[in-house]
Design a protein around this nucleic acid. Structure first.
Lengths: 197, 197, 197, 197
DNA sequence: GATGAATGAGCTTTCATTCAT
DNA sequence: AATGAATGAAAGCTCATTCAT
């Protein structure tokens, strides 16, 4: 058991390190030796854990989507109004963008724009289903409680994903005049007004 | 004059061809010889027009932002309500995404995710000012006419840019169940509700 | 005694498995892990039996040559004419090529063309002496019985080895229009005519 | 015209250099940088002439087969008996093996045993048709002139190819006690006796 | 202006071999 | 004896850029 666990732990450490490098330097500017070096690991051994750079990228997006989905799940399980849930989700998203910017950045800078890499194995956003699923649950709940207007799910999902991602992008470009958390009020209100019944 | 004009024309044809290739195949998967081949031009000569691949990428984003900005300008000049303007902008954006997908795709797949490339020379979104400026005009107009709620401009800009970009991304991933133009109603309404006074 | 025997048995199973993989996939395309996997054995342990991949290759050729030599020996011990012996040898060779193609293929695809590997330790065909020796006995016998013309042994040996190997190669390339055993008549006759007194 | 010719010349110089290295050091032990270095050429430029190492190997075998075929063609055009032709062919083959050993060695050490490399594009010995065709012409001529026994072509072809190749191999292994040309008498006679009517 | 052959650093990936357990 | 994670050198190939013509 110990060995399997050790291997799993190492696997995750590779994911975390690669995630950080990919999101900071970009996918193509990050080399396998870069990742191995940072882990004090040999290049060859890294390939014992992931069969290719592309495969590693896919595992990272799954991992990231899972983590983000789990955060949102905690909100979905709260007994609060949809308006309050929206605010919580925005807080979580911006909180992650501030504290663990790698994950959000990875979505924006790697997943969004390297279709070739994710084409095979991530069809139809299966690799980010962890995240999508929770947004879907949030939305359906709100509609069934008649707090949110009933509409095509993707119209709502695109709003969340695009809006939040967009704000983080603007922050990353250093053009937002204020800190992300100072936008929570505005963004939450806008989303709520857009979706409310 | 003729010569200068001829050169400008060729310059633009390079931009258009590169735009198409970059947005289709991705920035790194498109090589300079790819672009030159498609133009029936030598690589050496291409370098007479653009000093580097990165430089070319920057010129493309400026060009694209200009074109998109000009489209939105026509809306800004119309004497219609902000609600109607929002709808027009959404129509224009989705129309371009359907008819000239290269431009929108370029934003998403190239500009958004190759910070290294655009870092030097496009600080603070100067390279996309053509687009931003028109959104800003639209927003300020709406606010001054008291049709839109007054709030931080970036809260509104992020909504437009992120939401519309996000929808096009979802379309590109082939996960939207309907055509983009069938979402115009939903998206316009959501944006209007989010921003209205 | 038991232990030594067990070890010898495992040693041979490694040889047989490696022989099969080398002759099928080629020497360089077969990795040590490939061999270990097929044997449900660890790579580390495999190195307890053979000190290197090259060493293993050399042991295989010796083993193969021994097996082939033993087959021919049975012919040499028969009380039949040289003409009949030739036919028997051709039958044996083609029979092996059909039933245990690995061995003949190993000669052709591995031994013949990886001089680097066999240079050290197999000088002057010492590694295939098992086969050569029997051909030599056959030839000397035939000459002394005045059934075969006296000539340089290698003129005769090259005929056997090259001709038979060549036919198997052609079969392997799938360009022989008929089955190997349908060529036994022709080839036996040609060899006999070439060598007879 | 000059440029095209220059390029063709360079192409051939690559073929000749690679031929020499492949046949001397072996296909896998010869690296692309090895070839480029010997040509005082950059690795990248070499790829302007041949799209891959495998492709280069295939062009070499075609080239070699052509050269060898042309030599035999001169024999086929002579007005001499089949017996004399056989001797000429043996002389040519051994002559090449002595003077340009690369070509024959390439057949034996590269073509014969790297099926993976030649599988795609050289099916059914199409890459060595230059050589086969001439042997076929020689054989058919001999049969029609009733100097050679009528039999399956491949029975005769295998004899030539295998026997001659085998002798060169034995020479290469340094186990032949005499020079190749001292075997011309023996080998020619053996082949003639094998094939004559 | 136009050409495209030439450069060479840099990339991902492989694999024989070792060694701590 | 047996394991298999770890090593790291080396391979094939790519491509932005230059420059002689």
């Amino acid at each position: 058991m110990k060995i399997a666990e050790k291997k799993a732990r190492k696997r995750e450490s590779i994911i975390l390190t690669a995630l950080q490098l990919f999101s900071t330097k970009g996918f193509h500017k990050t080399t396998i030796p870069d990742i191995a070096d940072k882990l004090h690991m040999s290049v060859g051994n890294l390939y014992n854990y992931f069969s290719s750079k592309d495969m590693l990228a896919k595992e990272i997006i799954k991992f990231t989507s899972e983590v983000l989905g789990n955060e949102i799940k905690t909100v979905n399980m709260m007994d609060i109004s949809s308006e309050e849930k929206i605010r919580k989700i925005v807080e979580i998203y911006f909180g992650m963008a501030s504290e663990k910017p790698e994950m959000i950045e990875y979505f924006l800078r790697v997943y969004l724009s390297h279709r070739e890499v994710f084409a095979d194995g991530c069809e139809g956003m299966t690799c980010v289903s962890g995240f999508i699923t929770e947004i879907m649950i949030f939305f359906d709940d709100g509609v069934s409680k008649e707090e949110l207007r009933d509409q095509d799910f993707f119209s709502a999902f695109g709003l969340f994903m695009g809006y939040l991602g967009g704000m983080v992008f603007l922050k990353g470009e250093e053009i937002l005049p204020r800190e992300l958390d100072e936008y929570v009020d505005d963004i939450s209100r806008n989303i709520y007004y857009a979706l409310k019944a």
